[in-house]
Design a protein around this nucleic acid. Structure first.
Lengths: 190, 190
DNA sequence: TGCAAATTGTGAGGTTTGTCACACGCCCTG
DNA sequence: CAGGGCGTGTGACAAACCTCACAATTTGCA
């Protein structure tokens, strides 16, 4: 589907501009893939071969603890890049699991192709640097929210920042993302 | 001091190799600066002009809430890069404060010079990409620890990962970094 | 359409953590 | 060497949160 690649192009061109030839080079490194609700792209213990650019759908990235409880590290929707970055970049096994909450379409990129892309086109290295910085900043903001806010304030901050997520995601999963039990969240918002 | 720049070079060359000419180009963009204990490199509300590479000493990066309580986002010691990245990259005002816990020597880099460095030498863009990825991974690990661990386990994990920090940092600050009160931490470890 | 699974609300009781208060010892500096 | 600031431990009580249990409702799918 050409449409999928043009949404990748639009996404990249929010940061760096590409000629048609350059984008042709870029898109050669990606592969299209689709998954159904409840399928996993990888599971804890698996090797993590790809980073995924989400075209449509919704995913949860989570850790499963000893008591088999899930702790949601992040949600990924349209225009997000997601994987277990630790496992991906070090070519080791996943600590986390990436699972579809809805039917999902992605473009995947292997580490080898990621490096070819960076080496072959400096603009893409620039793109990934900017993306990585943005991700780092986002994570630090989230850490700050754990340090400074109570559960209710964390919920309201999320509500203000990502209202779109709230309608697509069950509150029990939001609770996990916020780091509280679903019962506590239920009481906080009633 | 030539010594300061060679420690920067060693640090960079853990990731990318540089010729003498290349490193001469790199080092031109940095400026040396030193601070005494309790001095701040920037304070919440200030514009943030630099990212700092720590040569020696120790810093705390923290947020001050409405009740004037400090929440420590991060410590920075030798070989760390630190700043309020949000404010630095967006050229906006600091949300955080960066303050010396010990006498500290740094090399600072302005955003303008950061970009010149990346444009002038692709290896440095590669270097910063790798560093940024590592930072992002570290932040996600910390988020995971807030989601999955109790305060005592977070303390022990930190103790296992960074024993060196423990001896240099008062426990009241460690408590703030871990997201618990100093009284609670005191009781957990006794 | 109909049944099983998923989602959410709510009560009771226990655990964890925060807050306030005070005491003690240490180190630094004048 | 004396005082003040700092770091730390601890008791008492309050607040936040978790767990278990059960019920009501909605949703998904066969």
């Amino acid at each position: 589907m050409d449409d999928d690649y043009t949404s990748l192009r639009k996404h990249i061109e929010k940061i760096v501009q590409l000629t048609d030839e350059e984008f042709a080079f870029v898109s050669k490194h990606f592969n299209f893939e689709k998954f159904k609700k409840k399928e996993t792209l990888f599971t804890g213990g698996d090797p993590v071969k790809y980073v995924y650019f989400v075209l449509s759908g919704l995913l949860k990235l989570f850790y499963t603890d000893k008591e088999a409880k899930e702790h949601i590290v992040s949600f990924a929707m349209e225009d997000w890049w997601e994987t277990d970055f630790q496992a991906y970049y070090t070519e080791s096994n996943a600590l986390l699991t990436l699972e579809c909450l809805e039917d999902t379409r992605v473009l995947r990129l292997s580490l080898e192709d990621f490096e070819k892309l960076c080496n072959g086109l400096q603009k893409m290295e620039r793109f990934f640097l900017k993306k990585s910085i943005a991700g780092h900043i986002g994570s630090e903001r989230r850490i700050l929210s754990f340090l400074t806010l109570g559960a209710k304030d964390r919920y309201e901050q999320l509500l203000a920042k990502s209202p779109s997520l709230m309608q697509r995601i069950p509150k029990s999963l939001l609770a996990s993302y916020l780091g509280v039990s679903r019962e506590t969240l239920s009481r906080l918002i009633s």
